[in-house]
Amino acid sequence: MGIKLVLTALPVAVLLEGVRRKLMARFQGRKGPPVIQPFYDLIKLFNKERTEASESRNLIFYAAPVISLAIMIFNYLILFGVLGFNYDFVLFIYLFTTAGVILIIGSLSSKSPLSFVGGVREILYLIAYEVIFIFTALNLISKSGELMLSNYNNAGLFIAPVSSVLLLIAGFAILKVTPFDSPAASAEISSSMTAEYSGKLLFAYELADFFKNGLFYFTAAILLFGRNTYSLIFIPALLLFYALMNATTPRYSFIRSTSHLLFIALLSIISGGLGV
């Protein structure tokens, strides 16, 4: 059963990106690409030639996207219980963060100034949104009395509403949605972190990114609305919410967005302490 779920969830994670693009296009009054466009993109990237600067050629640079992709798939395997052991919030957050950090290390090792600025921006964002993630999780654990994520079955939005809303705001930074998308700002730093990657490495990078976004949607739906079939309905709702926000807001400047995110992290610590 579990393996079937994973084999469904992985393509769905990529498909969600296609739906997001379609929604964005509709908000902008365009027809938009077909929903399966991300698959076409990935196939094309996979067949593309790989070129990189001689300064970028090092083991970390090559290994980072592949390791990140492997960790992401591993994360899906344990989320849907394929590996056959119960796991807690801590393991989940650890794996989720590690995949992101490895991508940052990969981009920093490329020695490109664009990647460097993007990596530094992503690190600062990571510090902020991980705090929100952890304190929301702690709040939900203490409220539901359940340490294991695999046994967690509560609607977080009702038992800890403030923390849940803060988690949704952290989602902007995780999914790189405006106004909190400085690390992926194409006009400023030409999408920076992927600047030096091409071909199959970029394929692995993009796929890991799609899986990461998908995992956030799945996890947010489980945390906020409970682990049941009905919470699946909320995944499109989350998608619609983020696409709408992306379509209607410009980007904050990097300093301003980081200070906002750190303030929200502070709020999440307070709300976690108060248990709301």
């Binding site: 908000f27 902008q28 006009a187 410009p250």
Partner: peptide
């Protein structure tokens, strides 16, 4: 300008 500011919706609207 709005594309540079990350606001692609207005970019599309103005270009229309």
């Amino acid at each position: 300008l709005f594309h540079d500011a990350g606001f692609d919706t207005l970019f599309m609207y103005y270009w229309r």
